[in-house]
Design a protein around this nucleic acid. Structure first.
Lengths: 154, 154
DNA sequence: TATAGGATTGACGTAAACGTAAAAGGTGCG
DNA sequence: CGCACCTTTTACGTTTACGTCAATCCTATA
C-alpha cells in the first residue's frame, strides 16, 4: 500500500527501483507528512514551486521535493508570498555558489522583516485602542447595571 | 462650491435649509475629511453601514453619518470586519439603554483581542525565524566573500 | 466482481474591501 | 457656450491561497 513501507521495498506493482535512499511518496503521504492538503500540493506544483516525478499520472515526491516544500512552508511562515518564494527558489543553482540567490533572499528578508515590524506596531496599536474601547464599554455597562440603587428600581 | 463654506450658508442653488447645525457635506468632502475614497463611502452605504440623505441623487452626509463613519473606521482599525461593525451598529437604539449592543460589542471585542494577541505571537515567531534565517544567509555570504584569501584570488 | 480508497484534471467558489472603467447628468465659471 | 469638475449607477477586476465539487480512473482487497 505504501511505497515506503518501513523496512520493505519490494513486491510492488510499480517499477520504482529502490535505488539506495530514493524514496518516493505519493501525494497523500506527502500531504500528511507536512500537514498540508492535496489541493495545496497540486497548487504549489501549478505555480511552479514543486516538480514531482510522475508514474503515469501519479505524482511521486522525492526528498528533493520535500526539501523544497520545507522551504516553501518556512517562507510562508515568515510571511513571504508564494511568488517571492518561487523567485528565490528559481535562482538556485546546484553547480554554483548561489551568491545571487542568497543576496536576493537577504534583500527580500530585510524588507519582509520591516513589514513584520510595522505589522506588529499596527497590532499593538489596535490592541491599545481595543482595550481602551473595552474599558469604556465596561464602564457604560456597569453604569447601566449598578444604578437601580438611585433611580426607582425596575 | 462647498455646501458648508466657512461662515456663509446662503445663496445656494440647493434647497438645503441651514437649520442650526444641520451641516450637509457631499461625498467628495466627506471622503477628504476622513481620508477615504468615494468608492469606499458608496461601498459602506451599499453594505448598509451608512445612510446619507439625498438631494435628488446626490448624497448628503450629516454629522450622524460622520459619527457612524468614525465608528466604522475605529472598528476597522482594531480589526473588525465590516460585517461585525454592521452587526454592532444595527443594534443601536437611540431610545433604549443599548445594553444588548454594548454586550455584543464587548463580546466581539474580547474575541478580537484574543485574535490580535495570537497574531502578535505569530508575528513575533515569524520575526524570530526570519532573523534566524537571515543570520545564516549572511554567514553563507561572508564565507563566499571572505575566502579568496586561501584559494587563488579571482 | 463489487467496493472502498486514492489519485487525476478542470473549473468555479470564497473571503474582504475596495479599484477602475464606462457612460451619463448636473453645475459654476469665464 | 463650452469646458472642467463633481457626482451618479452599474458592473467587472484585483489579490492570495487555496476549498470544493465533479467526473473519471486505477488498484488493492474481501
Amino acid at each position: 500500500m505504501k511505497l515506503v513501507s518501513p523496512g520493505e521495498a519490494a513486491a510492488n506493482t510499480n517499477d520504482i527501483p529502490a535505488e539506495a535512499g530514493e524514496e518516493f511518496v505519493r501525494i497523500g503521504e506527502m500531504a500528511k507528512k507536512y500537514g498540508v492538503t492535496l489541493r495545496t500540493l497540486r497548487f504549489y506544483e501549478d505555480k511552479g514551486l514543486l516538480n514531482p516525478h510522475r508514474d503515469g499520472s501519479t505524482r511521486l515526491y522525492t526528498r528533493r521535493d520535500k526539501a523544497r516544500l520545507k522551504l516553501i512552508l518556512l517562507g510562508r511562515k515568515v510571511g513571504f508570498s508564494l511568488r517571492d518564494v518561487k523567485q528565490m527558489m528559481d535562482l538556485y543553482d546546484p553547480t554554483g555558489s548561489n551568491t545571487k540567490q542568497l543576496r536576493l533572499a537577504l534583500d527580500k528578508s530585510e524588507k519582509q522583516l520591516a513589514r513584520l515590524q510595522k505589522q506588529r506596531a499596527l497590532i499593538d496599536d489596535a490592541i491599545g485602542e481595543l482595550s481602551n474601547s473595552m474599558s469604556i464599554v465596561r464602564q457604560m455597562l456597569s453604569e447601566r447595571t449598578a444604578t437601580p440603587q438611585a433611580s426607582a428600581a425596575g
